[in-house]
Simulated scan of single mutants.
Amino acid sequence: MRRLLLFGCLLSALLLVACGGGGGRSEEKVTPPPVNAELAAAGKEYFNKYACSTCHSMAGQAGIGPALNGIYGKKVQLEDGSSVVVDDAYLRESILQPDAKTVKGYPKGSMTNVIMPFMPELQKPEVLDALVEYIKSTT
């Protein structure tokens, strides 16, 4: 019985960590893992190639879309009233499904319309990974 209880506690702890917390709680800020400089440099090239800078600033000023410099690990408010910590998973989802979670104050649908022609390229793991690494590198 004691082993079963211990196993249950261990399993619960692992699930709690894997699911990012528990009880609806989220961390205010996560510390980004070390950045792969080579991958981030490729991400910067993709950021320019796919005109991400047309809507997203890397200098801090808001544009059509939110500024992305220093955003990794921070909590952002969403249009639906919830909030989310910007991490790899959130960035990937925001690139591939821009209207899934819209940051408060920004129009839904504008990013989808702009990136749709680039979607086959953006879905490539090497491109997506590089873009996320670039955004992470600006923290």
Score class of each variant (00 low, 15 high):
Thr31Tyr: 06
Ala40Val: 01
Glu45Trp: 05
Leu11Ile: 13
Ala51Tyr: 11
Ser57Ile: 02
Ser57Pro: 06
Arg2Gln: 15
Ala13Thr: 07
Arg25Tyr: 14
Cys19Phe: 15
Ala18Tyr: 13
Glu27Val: 15
Pro33Trp: 07
Lys44Ala: 12
Ala41Met: 01
Gly23Asn: 11
Val35Met: 08
Cys55Phe: 00
Leu16Phe: 15
Cys52Arg: 02
Gly23Pro: 01
Gly20Lys: 08
Tyr46Pro: 00
Cys9Trp: 13
Leu11Val: 14
Leu10Cys: 14
Arg25Lys: 09
Gly20Tyr: 05
Asn36Val: 02
Phe7Asn: 04
Gly8Arg: 08
Leu5Gln: 10
Ala37Lys: 11
Arg3Val: 06
Cys55Ser: 04
Ala37Gly: 04
Leu39Met: 12
Lys29Glu: 15
Ala42Tyr: 00
Leu11Met: 13
Lys29Thr: 13
Gly24Cys: 09
Tyr46Asp: 02
Leu14Gly: 14
Leu10Lys: 03
Leu16Met: 15
Leu11Thr: 13
Phe47Asp: 07
Lys49Cys: 10
Arg25Ala: 14
Glu28Cys: 05
Tyr46Ala: 03
Leu14Pro: 00
Tyr46Gly: 02
Leu14Cys: 14
Pro32Thr: 05
Leu5Phe: 13
Ala40Thr: 01
Glu28Lys: 12
Ser12Gln: 09
Tyr50Val: 06
Gly24Arg: 02
Pro34Ser: 11
Gly24Ala: 10
Lys44Phe: 06
Thr54Ile: 13
Pro32Asn: 06
